[in-house]
C-alpha cells in the first residue's frame, strides 16, 4: 500500500471535546502524532492528559458525549474520521487496527470459555475473511465457513504457541478466571495479533501486572511486534516501561503533545521543561527527587497558550498568549516550547 510520507498513521491537529455537566472539556486540543510502519510509538503522559482519548479516537470508540471539533486521523492515506461507519467496522477496527486493553481481568467475558471467545474474534476479524462475507442471508444465520474455520483454528494454535500458551485444547475449554493476569494479557496479545493488523493500540497493557510479569509481557510484545512488522501505539504513564519497549516517544500534557523524539535521544536530551521535570520526579538512585509543583490544569477552562505555563519556571508573556509552534531540533526530535532547555542534564 502506498503510504504518503512513509507514515502509517498521521494524526493532525485533532480536537476532541466532551460535553460534561460543568461545561465543555477540551480533552484533545490540537494533537499531532505520527506512527511509521513497524515502529513502536510510545504515548507518554500523566492521567488525564488525553492519551486514552487519543487511542479511542483512532479506534473510533469515543464516548457518546464526545465531539470531534477539527483535525484528521489519516491511516494508510485515508481519513478515518471521514470513512463510512460500515467500512470502519468491516475493514479497520479489529482488523487493520486492533487493541490491547489495560485490564486483562475485565476484558474477557467471564461466562464463555476462551476458545469460544477466540473463535468469535476470528469469525469476524480473521485476515482470510472476505470483505462482504457474512452479509445478507449468511449474516442472518451468522455462518462460519468450515474451511476458513479450520485454517483459522490452525493460525490460533500457532499464535498461542507464540505467546507461550502451548496447549491450545486445554486453554480453549478454560474460563477466563482460570488464567492468571499475565496469561490473560498473553491471550489478549494473541487476539490483537491474530487478525494480522497494521497497527496495534496497546493502552497501558502492563499497568495491572507485577513487575516480573510486566517485563515478561513487554519482552513478548516487543518480540512479536518486531517479528510481524506491525506498528504499535503504546500508551503508558510509566517512563521506565516506555524506555524498554518504544522506538519513539511522544509526551502529552493536558491534551496537547509537547515533545517527540527517538527513545535514546528523548531520555538523553529532553528539551521541554515538562519532560525534564517529569524525568526528575522519577525515583532513581543517586538523585534527589524533585516535584513538579502545582497541579494539572482543568480541561474545561485550560490555560491559554502553552498549557504548561502556570507550572513552568521559564514561562514568559509569549507562553501565556499563544501555543508554541513545532521546533524541529534535528534527528526527528521535535519540541513545542518557546524556551526549550538547551543542554538538559542527561538522563
Amino acid at each position: 500500500m502506498a503510504l504518503p510520507g512513509d507514515n502509517l498513521l498521521e494524526v493532525e491537529d485533532l480536537r476532541v471535546s466532551f460535553a460534561t455537566e460543568s461545561g465543555v472539556a477540551k480533552v484533545l486540543d490540537g494533537v499531532n502524532l505520527t506512527i511509521r510502519p513497524g515502529e513502536i510509538m510510545g504515548l507518554v503522559g500523566e492521567s488525564g492528559c488525553g492519551k486514552t482519548t487519543l487511542a479511542n479516537a483512532i479506534l473510533g470508540i469515543l464516548a457518546r458525549n464526545a465531539r470531534h471539533e477539527a483535525g484528521t486521523i489519516r491511516f494508510g492515506g485515508e481519513d478515518l474520521l471521514a470513512m463510512p461507519r460500515r467500512r470502519i467496522e468491516d475493514e479497520v477496527r479489529g482488523r487493520r487496527i486492533t487493541f490491547i486493553p489495560q485490564d486483562p481481568y475485565g476484558s474477557f467475558n467471564p461466562l464463555f470459555p476462551i476458545g469460544t471467545q477466540t473463535m468469535e474474534v476470528m469469525k469476524w476479524k480473521s485476515p482470510h475473511r472476505a470483505a462482504g462475507e457474512g452479509r445478507g442471508v449468511a449474516g442472518f444465520f451468522s455462518r462460519y465457513p468450515r474451511a476458513r474455520r479450520r485454517s483459522d483454528a490452525a493460525a490460533v494454535s500457532q499464535m498461542l504457541r507464540a505467546v507461550q500458551i502451548p496447549d491450545r485444547d486445554a486453554a480453549f475449554v478454560k474460563l477466563p478466571h482460570e488464567f492468571s493476569g499475565g496469561q490473560r494479557q498473553r491471550l489478549m496479545i494473541a487476539l490483537a495479533l491474530l487478525p494480522q493488523p497494521q497497527l496495534v493500540i496497546a493502552d497501558e497493557p502492563t499497568t495491572a501486572l507485577d513487575v516480573t510479569i510486566q517485563v515478561q509481557i513487554l519482552k513478548l510484545l516487543k518480540q512479536l511486534a518486531k517479528k510481524s512488522g506491525v506498528s504499535v501505539l503504546f500508551t503508558t504513564h510509566d517512563l521506565g516501561t516506555a524506555y524498554e519497549i518504544c522506538d519513539r516517544i511522544t509526551v502529552m500534557y493536558a491534551g496537547q503533545e509537547v515533545e517527540t523524539a527517538p527513545v535514546d535521544d528523548f531520555f538523553r536530551r529532553p528539551h521541554h521543561p515538562y519532560t525534564v521535570r517529569l524525568l526528575e520526579s522519577l525515583p532513581r538512585p543517586g538523585r534527589e527527587l524533585r516535584e513538579i509543583g502545582g497541579e494539572i490544569p482543568g480541561l474545561i477552562s485550560p490555560p491559554a497558550g502553552c498549557r504548561f505555563h502556570p507550572r513552568c519556571a521559564r514561562a514568559t508573556d509569549v507562553c501565556r498568549a499563544e501555543r508554541p509552534p513545532v521546533a524541529a531540533l534535528g534527528g526527528g526530535h521535535e519540541v513545542r516550547c518557546y524556551h526549550p532547555i538547551a543542554e538538559a542534564t542527561p538522563a
Binding site: 496469561q183 517485563v215 513487554l218 519482552k219 521506565g240
Partner: peptide
C-alpha cells in the same frame, strides 16, 4: 536478584533484553 533485574534502568541496558525469570 530476579526482582532487582526487572527494574527499568533508564539510559542503561534494556531490561527486556536481559531479564530471564520465567513463569508466574
Amino acid at each position: 536478584q530476579s526482582l532487582l533485574s526487572a527494574i527499568p534502568d533508564i539510559g542503561g541496558r534494556r531490561v527486556t533484553d536481559t531479564f530471564t525469570l520465567e513463569g508466574e
